[in-house]
């Protein structure tokens, strides 16, 4: 997904002279072709995230469309004020590409995890948040990203993530897509979690629980119609590789509360508890720890259904 995203910047830049790349201190050889062919539109500016954001703002004020890339947590936590003021207050078309969204950097510990990135970005007016499921969806999104007139935060997965995107339905910013139809349970997810949710839905089907899956790659602006449509089921479940606070689950809950459309058995928000992760290992190991792997998701849904049905 990361490689596809960066390659797309180069491809788009060949067709559109407004596109520039701004990186921090990324891996050697990154976008070498772009650097060679269009050096005036390739910038690698060092470990200076605050400056990078301000610089991108300056470029955007003059009509350029900067694609900025560094590690997700540094592009959200480190330079929040620059993102808020320089990009969002000015409402500039800068794209922030965060490497290692969620638990990708599990072995590197909590300084490098991005499990509150979406919550941080959701607080900012004008900011859009996109969390694609795989490289194919990334490609479709990137083509659509150029003309979006506002800032966008793009959350990248680890790479090599299984492809679930159906290219007969091109990416549209702000629109969700139904991956699996209805039933009593409606699962809403984004990023790589949508694949896990599809697998969880199959496990649930084996237990005679029918679960639909809505993939919501745009967390902001949230697809209100898709959320409200999901409230027709008995239970809405949100699943995210993020703290339960402030992310997709909160976005969905906001819509349901504001519209007073809480499903019969309520909303189950699955995600990471409100504590800094203490373990290392791999992304998959961490997901399993938080019961965000397919079996864990299925089990939590089954338990909630049983519990809540008994309560009502």
């Amino acid at each position: 997904m990361r490689k596809t995203c960066l390659n797309m910047i180069y491809e788009l830049a060949k067709q559109d002279e407004r596109i520039v790349f701004v990186g921090s201190d990324l891996g050697p050889g990154l976008l070498d072709d772009m650097k060679t062919e269009m050096p005036e539109r390739f910038y690698m500016e060092g470990v200076s995230e605050q400056n990078i954001i301000g610089m991108a703002a300056g470029l955007a004020m003059e009509g350029f469309i900067p694609y900025v890339n560094t590690i997700a947590t540094f592009i959200t936590r480190r330079c929040f004020e620059q993102v808020a003021v320089d990009l969002c207050l000015h409402d500039l078309p800068v794209r922030l590409i965060g490497n290692g969204g969620g638990l990708v950097y599990a072995p590197l510990g909590p300084t490098h995890l991005a499990v509150e990135d979406i919550g941080i970005m959701r607080t900012l007016p004008n900011m859009a948040i996109v969390s694609p499921s795989d490289a194919e969806e990334m490609k479709s999104f990137m083509r659509n990203s150029v003309e979006w007139p506002h800032p966008i935060y793009i959350r990248l997965g680890k790479g090599g993530d299984p492809v679930i995107f159906d290219d007969s339905r091109p990416f549209e910013l702000g629109k969700a897509s139904t991956l699996r139809d209805g039933g009593d349970v409606r699962i809403i997810s984004s990023g790589i979690m949508s694949k896990h949710c599809m697998d969880a839905a199959k496990l649930l089907a084996d237990r005679n629980i029918s679960a639909g899956v809505v993939h919501m790659p745009t967390v902001k602006p949230v697809d209100v119609d898709a959320v409200l449509a999901a409230s027709d089921g008995k239970l809405i479940v949100t699943v995210e590789e993020h703290f339960r606070t402030g992310g997709l689950g909160s976005a969905v809950a906001d819509v349901l509360v504001d519209a007073n459309r809480i499903p019969e058995l309520g909303v189950l928000r699955l995600g990471i508890e409100d504590r800094f992760p203490t373990k290392y290992g791999s992304q998959d190991e961490q997901l399993e720890q938080y019961q965000l792997h397919p079996a864990g998701i299925a089990q939590q849904i089954e338990d909630a259904l049983a519990q809540r049905s008994e309560d009502t």
Binding site: G54, M55, L59, G63
Partner: peptide, 30 residues
Amino acid sequence: RGKVPGVEASTGALGHGLSIGVGTALALRI
């Protein structure tokens, strides 16, 4: 910016202007 004609950047939080200036200067050079 956008409210006051002639104002190039919304500032107030300190330490932002020089980076915006760098980006602007690069853009003008391109």
